[in-house]
């Protein structure tokens, strides 16, 4: 029975917390990671308040033609590059640093046999990923 406390779950604020986690801050302060912590996407599941990303469904549905990736510069290039191997679901789960996206790109090319596109397309795709699936912004 989950009818009590069934308040709106539009807790979009979860993602905003990421911005406060000063990466490589000169003086790291672990308490900043705890400041202003939201209730979580589901008030009746306390684990949702501890997650690095909002629950599925709170961030809009994205473009169904592109496997649910949000529209924006590079969305199409990203879609066609990535789904040669895997579906968009693994992309949409990520909230990682810019550096981690660069590392993942290298790993996919060197270890997973990803065909690397031209430099310009690579830049467009990485910018798209860092813009939309980031822990930094």
């Amino acid at each position: 029975m989950k009818h009590l406390f069934a308040m709106g779950t539009g807790a979009v604020a979860v993602l905003a917390l990421g911005a406060g986690l000063a990466l490589a801050a000169p003086e790291p302060d672990p308490m900043t990671a705890l400041a202003g912590r939201p209730a979580g996407a589901d008030p009746l599941d306390p684990m949702t308040a501890l997650m690095a990303r909002p629950e599925e469904g709170t961030g809009g549905e994205g473009n169904v033609e592109l496997g649910g990736l949000p529209d924006g510069p590079g969305a199409e290039d990203t879609f066609y590059q990535c789904v040669a191997c895997h579906s968009t679901e693994i992309i949409k789960q990520q909230r990682v640093t810019d550096h981690r996206w660069d590392e993942l790109w290298t790993w996919m090319v060197e270890k997973q046999g990803m065909a690397e596109p031209d430099e310009e397309t690579k830049k467009v795709i990485l910018t798209y990923l860092k813009t939309n699936f980031s822990s930094e912004r």
């Binding site: 917390l17 990421g18 986690l21 990466l23 990671a33 684990m47 501890l50 997650m51 690095a52 990303r53 693994i90 789960q93 990520q94 909230r95 990682v96 640093t97 981690r100 993942l104 822990s135 930094e136």
Partner: peptide, 15 residues
């Protein structure tokens, strides 16, 4: 993995 902040790459398993 889902409980690490900042997020880490991979499937976001909870429990």
């Amino acid at each position: 993995r889902a409980f690490f902040q900042p997020g880490t790459s991979g499937n976001q398993w909870t429990v």
